[in-house]
């Protein structure tokens, strides 16, 4: 390793720590979030330095991009409701804070000592790890031919460790259900975002779809895959939402729900079919594996993209009730619970 590389790595490492520190201590929350986004981009650069381009793409689009968008939109919603009162409160608190911090000083010192001990312990553990352990890399390489793809990361995600990925898609779905159960989409009276942003989103969304398709295809033999592609689709959705687009009541019903579960459904279906043929769950025959992985990934891309965009929306969009809604038996109409929206 050359000196130049070492210098670069050291600079990058210190920048990461410094940005994280700034993001966590900046008194202004907006500034903190912007610094956090910059931190995410430097993380993406770090993944490249560590020979992990698949991770770099996921980090740049999800870790920096979508997380940043989520944080900023949450901050805007925090500020929109009685913002001035919050500032007053904060000033009031800041006054009492100084007193508190005096009392807290011994506590903070103790905390720092404890955390330093934790850090030292972690460093000791890692530095005493045995050298030159082959790890699972060789195993992955030996079985790559039967996996159906030639990008080892995709092989691990969709074939060898299919369980993990299936469960991860379920986590994504569960999260959305959690967000939806916290309330309907807030009726925000956003002003029209202006023709420039609107046009930008209209131009970029088709191109983002193209790029997502490309990443989906290229993931089989080079960095890329369903998660990176899905996050691009999610970004397209976020752009549309920012430009004022909202899913109509028809779209927000069954079509939305089907596309949300499509990824998990395709995964499970592909796993189940081969149980019937005497194989194990999620064990694909090598001759079909390539096509199967592509199909699962296509479904997963769509689901991931739409789930991420729906998470950005932050609540269940309104949908039209199915026309055949039946009245419940044994329950007079008046006793049905009335829902009221919380302020």
């Amino acid at each position: 390793m050359t000196l130049l590389q070492l210098m670069f790595d050291t600079l990058l490492g210190f920048s990461l720590l410094w940005l994280a520190w700034q993001a966590l201590t900046s008194p202004d929350l907006f500034r903190a979030i912007v610094l956090f986004i910059a931190f995410g981009l430097l993380m993406a650069l770090t993944w490249i330095r560590l020979d992990a381009p698949d991770v770099a793409m996921a980090e740049a689009s999800i870790g920096a991009g979508l997380t940043g968008a989520l944080l900023l939109s949450a901050l805007a919603r925090l500020g929109s409701k009685n913002g001035s009162r919050a500032i007053l409160e904060k000033k009031h608190q800041a006054g009492s804070m100084t007193e508190n911090t005096k009392n807290q000083l011994p506590f903070r010192l103790l905390l720092m000592v404890l955390l330093l001990a934790v850090a030292a312990g972690l460093v000791y553990v890692v530095l005493t790890l045995p050298e030159n352990i082959p790890g699972l890399g060789i195993l992955v390489e030996e079985n790559l031919e039967s996996s159906g793809v030639s990008n080892p990361v995709t092989a691990v995600l969709l074939n060898y460790r299919g369980y993990d990925t299936l469960l991860e898609l379920s986590v994504l779905l569960l999260t959305l259900l959690g967000v939806w159960s916290l309330g309907d989409m807030t009726k925000q009276h956003e002003s029209f975002p202006g023709p420039v942003l609107s046009t930008l989103s209209r131009l970029l969304v088709p191109l983002l779809i193209m790029a997502a398709g490309y990443l989906l295809w290229v993931g089989a033999h080079a960095p890329g895959g369903a998660f990176q592609a899905g996050s691009l689709l999610g970004a397209a959705g976020v752009l549309l939402l920012l430009a004022g687009w909202r899913p109509g009541t028809r779209l927000a019903g069954l079509p939305l729900r089907i596309s949300l579960v499509l990824g998990v459904a395709a995964f499970v279906a592909a796993g189940m079919v081969f149980i019937l043929l005497g194989r194990q769950f999620l064990e694909y025959p090598p001759s079909f594996a390539g096509v199967l992985i592509l199909l699962i990934e296509a479904a997963a891309t769509l689901s991931i993209g739409i789930t991420l965009a729906a998470l950005f929306l932050g609540g269940r969009p309104k949908f039209s009730q199915p026309k055949f809604s039946r009245p419940k038996l044994n329950q007079p109409k008046s006793s049905q619970p009335k829902f009221r929206r919380h302020k």
């Binding site: 698949d54 989520l70 992955v140």
Partner: peptide
């Protein structure tokens, strides 16, 4: 480099963003 941790980290990044989204919704 070993691709298994890479795949785990990609999984982790996606789980982290969903956890963040849920946490933000809870915060609101």
């Amino acid at each position: 480099p070993d691709p298994v941790p890479h795949a785990m980290v990609i999984t982790g990044i996606v789980v982290a963003v969903s956890a963040t989204a849920l946490a933000l919704a809870l915060m609101l």
